[in-house]
């Protein structure tokens, strides 16, 4: 192994990858949420359909899409490698253990929370991303141009109560994942300073709750108000 692969296959190095990809995925959440705000415009979905067409066709977005997929792949792959290693590091577990006395529930269950998010991601992509990107949606004409009517798919999907429930539960899982993950990423990168760390920790909690609340409001809005 050369120095580069040695660095990023060490336990400390893999956490650097987890941190960088994790923060990158956080930035994606912000962009995604801002885009989704188009859904709240009272225009029958015009703005949202034009926006989703832009997202599916713009070349810069297409490049970012590949980087985003790589972000998910590296984040999940390293999580799997490290989890396997961590399980092997304690082959016999304690008969009597009280981890709740020394650490938060979220910090000890990042793998479980991540798995819930992954299952959600697959459902979410299958329902919205795959038809939007590869076809299968009804058309709608906006100012003489035909667009895919992704808005209709959103409205229809969120009339189903269990679908709304999956979304809300997944966003709670994401919130807990981020509450630990956001500040943990800065620690994994060795970024700790008396002046900034308290702010990063508070910002991380606020960020996690607000972003996930923003996403969770969308299915609830369509279920109860549209």
């Amino acid at each position: 192994m050369n120095w580069f692969t040695k660095t990023f296959s060490s336990t400390v190095g893999r956490k650097i990858i987890m941190a960088v990809t994790g923060l990158f995925l956080c930035s994606f959440l912000v962009v995604h949420l801002i885009g989704n705000l188009q859904l709240f415009r009272n225009d029958g979905g015009e703005a949202f359909n034009v926006y989703s067409h832009f997202m599916a066709s713009n070349p810069i977005i297409r490049v970012m899409e590949i980087i985003l997929v790589l972000g998910f792949v590296f984040h999940i792959y390293d999580a799997l490698v490290l989890t396997r290693r961590n399980k092997a590091a304690r082959p016999v577990s304690y008969a009597n253990n009280h981890p709740e006395e020394n650490s938060s529930w979220a910090s000890r269950n990042m793998g479980l929370l991540g798995t819930i998010i992954l299952v959600f991601l697959i459902i979410h992509l299958w329902n919205f991303f795959v038809p939007a990107r590869f076809g299968g949606l009804d058309g709608v004409v906006i100012e003489d141009v035909e667009y895919d009517n992704l808005y209709l798919r959103v409205v229809e999907s969120f009339q189903i109560w269990w679908y709304v429930a999956i979304y809300v539960i997944s966003m709670v899982a994401l919130a807990y994942h981020l509450i630990h993950g956001f500040q943990s990423a800065f620690q994994s990168l060795g970024l700790d300073h008396k002046k900034y760390t308290p702010f990063i920790q508070k910002f991380g909690v606020a960020f996690s709750i607000l972003v996930c609340l923003g996403f969770a409001v969308i299915p609830l809005y369509f279920f109860f108000l549209v």
């Binding site: 336990t11 650490s103 938060s104 910090s107 060795g190």
Partner: peptide
């Protein structure tokens, strides 16, 4: 195993070694 920043170690440490050291190790490592 690898560190997942749960902070359990520093809570249980009998002499109170702080988590700051772990951050320092990582910046030293990078």
């Amino acid at each position: 195993g690898s560190c997942t920043n749960t902070g359990a170690c520093a809570v249980e440490c009998p002499v109170g070694i702080s988590l700051e050291n772990i951050d320092m190790l990582r910046s030293e490592f990078i």
